[in-house]
Design a protein around this nucleic acid. Structure first.
Lengths: 215, 215
DNA sequence: CGCCAGTTTGACCAAGATCAACGCAAGTGG
DNA sequence: CCACTTGCGTTGATCTTGGTCAAACTGGCG
């Protein structure tokens, strides 16, 4: 669907060029990478681990806009202040790039702008899928969708090492912890998944899950 | 929050440059501008009227990803086939730009890429707000949010000329027609809005609505 | 061993979906 | 001009999904 070869090579160019201006940073589980309302002077690429982009709402509720996995970028928005915070789900390694330095780099090598643009478009496509999930799917489909998405973006086999808590998943899917648990339990009793510890989920029937989240 | 002056002037540049490669097209109420699975060879800017970006789902349901108002662009995604269709809500005038010609234009005048990028980032920010609304708000807040958003993006006074049907609004907010009607009726009986005909909504207490959709 | 945070399960409740009926205004054809 | 249709919009009655509240369970750690 996407023009993979082009964006892939542009991406490689981008990464090697960025190597010169980036700083490697490590964050421990649950540490904040940046807070809401922080000045937004830089953006990031995840090297390892999982990052959650989130926001506290009135009434103590929390909303998770996005999970970022290795290779994903976040904080690219052209705002002066952060609208969301970014937190390490488990231990995380990221590269940090100042917006200023990125602009200079792009002035030198304008073709890199295309790679950045492609990353942003990918973010937009992800966001649109999320709008669809949250706007049109019910609890079981949302959870199925989460599992399928995770296995596509994160793992290459059917045993998922899910780093986030049930609470994270719930806030990501617009559900409650209890509902997420119940749906997972029912998937389990239907033999669609197997659970060995809360953070290890085995997809026994990926096709059933995929069918569930067909639009 | 955004760097308005920069993006504004870049935008003006972009529009005048695009004038040379664009085609003006008119669509009547409910006509398709493009369909799902059409080849995606061009993108659009709305000149007048409202466009809905939508998708048919299994079971005859429909999902509206976005409403586009004058000045908004749509169809920018770098896909070969459309993932959503675009339809005229009322009568609509748009400008159509071939992706090919746009690329050539940008090769000539690379600074225009920045304006396109800014438009895409705006789209991403809108999408993130929508994720928040659909993931974390309940029916009355969603409807309030729709009214506030519409008045901010479309009208400069408190009497809204809402071109879309209740069904459109429902599919946009992830609710049913009945729920949208009921919420509007309750707003009306609370004196927050007044209805004179289904498509004319007067905001009698915009502050109440704004307070409702505070995160 | 006891505590604690996170997970799971159950009982109950409420928001919103579904189903059904009615209202209402704009065509349409006689 | 008036019956009749048609497409929306509104309202009410009922049912279902998922939220809320409460309690039990689990594994890790001091």
């Amino acid at each position: 669907m996407y023009d993979k070869s082009t964006t892939q090579s542009a991406r490689t160019d981008l990464l090697s060029a960025l190597g010169r201006i980036g700083v490697r940073r490590v964050f421990a589980r649950n540490k904040e990478i940046y807070s809401e309302d922080d000045p937004a002077a830089s953006w990031f690429i995840v090297l390892s681990g999982t990052v959650r982009i989130c926001k506290l709402l009135v009434g103590g509720r929390r909303h998770i806009a996005e999970f970022c996995y290795p290779g994903d970028c976040f904080g690219l928005d052209r705002v002066t202040q952060r609208l969301y915070s970014a937190e390490a789900v488990g231990d995380v390694v990221v590269m940090r790039y100042a917006h200023k330095a990125t602009e200079l780099l792009i002035n030198d090598e304008p073709h890199l702008a295309q790679a950045l643009y492609a990353m942003t478009l990918r973010g937009l496509a992800n966001a649109q899928t999320r709008i669809l999930v949250l706007g049109a799917m019910r609890a079981p489909e949302r959870v199925a969708r989460f599992l399928v998405e995770f296995s596509e973006r994160r793992e290459y086999c059917d045993v998922l090492e899910v780093p986030m808590s049930r609470n994270d998943i719930a806030d990501y899917l617009g559900l409650t912890v209890e509902t997420v648990c119940r749906v997972l339990s029912s998937f389990k009793s239907d033999g669609v998944i197997a659970l060995s510890g809360p953070h290890r989920i085995e997809l026994r029937s990926p096709d059933t899950l995929a069918a569930l989240c067909e639009t």
